[in-house]
Design a protein around this nucleic acid. Structure first.
Lengths: 349, 349
DNA sequence: CTGAAAGCGCTTACAG
DNA sequence: CTGAAAGCGCTTACAG
């Protein structure tokens, strides 16, 4: 026999008032209920240990202090990586501050190892006041749907939708990458290459854009290479073939293997080749060097995303600025220095 | 203006039936509704894109597929340690399997950095079908309360309540510690000491009990030392003073510093002193040795705890065995070998 | 086989 | 200031 949960009706009986009055004490302005009645109700609540049933609240008014957290993959993966953790550190801390609980949608349907945001999963979202979305394998179609007639949500990480205005809190990769490019320029580099997957993902696009914009502003020629399917040796070959003195790595996790390959070919980092990573990899690099690059403010992104979501829920107006772009801190490191002196000033004629 | 969603009433209107009939088509056995009617309803559902409102379902059914997860500290701590992670890996995987969502009680009141399970936090628990409890700073009084009139719950880790029968899924430290003791005995050790905090926590008590039982069974004298407040050097002093050839460490995280102190005093592990750790520390030891000891099945504990909880929720009977003790796998390692030969056979007279 | 009705536990106009 | 009532969108006995 499940211990029957205390309801407003029980409290009302104890306090000798109507159920509606209990609700008013709980929800309305203090002066909606007379002080004496109010007192009795409050006491009854204390004694009974009453707590509002959020499901009923939800149905009646549509809010329940529950924030949904939807991730496209398990929040707690078996393997080594732990992609979501830094974001969730920020999210949890902010949730504590806001006084909301977090509902992890672990019941979502899984297709090809990725959780889907459609069907029952999608319907389940409406349980919460609003929802945080995290992951790198989102389906833009699903998002468009959600935007159209779903509960409020905020994506952690910049996401763009062709026709829509998707709320997000992202990191300013464009600017951060530009900062790194300018660091190279200040050191006197002229031939600075960009290596990354030529992918449509915003986080990668933004880095590429940042590179292009900064290079163009400096009137330097760009050299972009697709990292996909290339071995470290092949990449070093590209560096040499294009006489690059600097290399930006969008794929920061490959930094160390590329440096090794360069070393094997007699190219020392940073003496002969300056390198920088555009963001820290999930799994810290096993490296003897302090890599130059920038730090992604993941915890802050999580916290701000939740803060923005709460704002959206509370105002429910289109007025609020729905996008936030947080700055990345540049890390000086030691892998970028002046380029080697040109062997033949004026070119290699 | 939130886009109005299609309800059963809408579907009923389209199909020319009652709202209840729509519900029956959706939920009851196929033959509760005549094939023709059923067909019309199904068509209307298809056309309208109807999806049941899970909030309303929850309210009507009295269950909501939400499992609460209460941790005494943040699930995602800032610092290095990550105590809860392995448990939550198991919990999340099991939740996927069971089709339930996880509600993290991040709104709980915090006192001295620990979340409390009383007041509003306590009340909030009842919104879930049942709740998983994790942490090492539980208040037994709060637990007793919960047991009395709270929702079903299961503690991850063995917990005992003087008067109550608290459901848990734990690791069998008694047996695992006994296994380690027997490993020492098989190697010929006779003077085996136990070092740990003499604390009331079950996990520590169990290790001590396991040690005592196994030693008594072998008719060996026990030597127990409180690690609290003792420096590594002082501990080594105890080892020497008591002529121990073997040492069990309940506080596995101190293993390496004690080994160093022993080495500094000329005691090599395992040549002069065999050591074993009773469970892996949260943060992996920075050590050149493979430590002998046992592995705590944390993921499995999480998964089983959730499975047990669901069972309790579904059966709602006292019949179910409410306790599960999982075996710990012994790790052979290389820190336990035969004790050094006695200098004077027959004693040191 | 199907509909009308009550109920899940709340919120919120609406009367007094 | 307070109560009676309607309603949120479902499920589920209970009558026909």
């Amino acid at each position: 026999m499940p211990p029957a949960r205390v309801t407003q009706a029980d409290v009302a009986r104890m306090a000798g008032v109507s159920q509606a009055t209990v609700s008013l004490v709980l929800n309305a302005e203090p002066d909606r209920v007379g002080p004496a009645t109010r007192q009795r109700v409050l006491e009854a609540i204390g004694e009974s240990g009453y707590a509002a049933n959020p499901v009923a609240q939800s149905l009646a008014r549509g809010r329940n202090s529950m924030i949904g957290v939807f991730t496209y993959e398990p929040v707690f993966p078996h393997g080594g990586g732990d992609f979501y953790r830094p974001f969730l550190i920020g999210i949890e801390a902010e949730a504590e501050r806001q006084g909301s609980d977090l509902l992890l949608f672990t019941s979502a349907e899984v297709v090809d190892g990725k959780r889907r945001l459609s069907g029952r999963s999608r319907a389940r979202l409406v349980i919460t006041d609003g929802c945080l979305l995290l992951g790198r394998t989102e389906d833009k179609g699903e998002l468009a749907h959600l935007l159209e007639d779903g509960p409020p949500f905020v994506f952690v990480g910049r996401r763009r939708l062709p026709g829509g205005d998707l709320p997000y809190v992202g990191a300013d990769y464009i600017r951060a990458t530009g900062d790194v490019v300018r660091l190279f320029l200040e050191h006197g580099h002229e031939r600075i290459g960009f290596l990354g997957e030529m992918d449509a993902r915003e986080s990668l696009r933004d880095r590429l854009d940042g590179y292009r914009v900064a290079m163009r502003a400096a009137e330097m020629p760009t050299s972009e290479f697709d990292a996909a399917g290339r071995t470290p040796d092949e990449i070093v070959e590209l560096v040499v073939g294009n006489r690059l003195t600097g290399l930006l790595l969008a794929e920061s996790h490959r930094a160390e293997e590329i440096r090794s390959a360069a070393a094997a070919r007699g190219l020392d980092v940073p003496r002969d080749l300056s390198m920088a990573v555009l963001g820290q990899p999930e799994i810290p690099l096993d490296t003897p060097l302090a890599w130059t690059g920038f730090r992604i403010p993941r915890e802050e992104m999580g916290a701000q995303a939740l803060a923005l979501l709460v704002e959206l829920i509370e105002t429910r107006t289109k007025q609020t600025e729905r996008h936030r772009l947080l700055p990345c801190l540049i890390e000086a490191g030691e892998t970028v220095t002046a380029p080697p002196a040109r062997s033949a000033p004026g070119g290699d004629t």
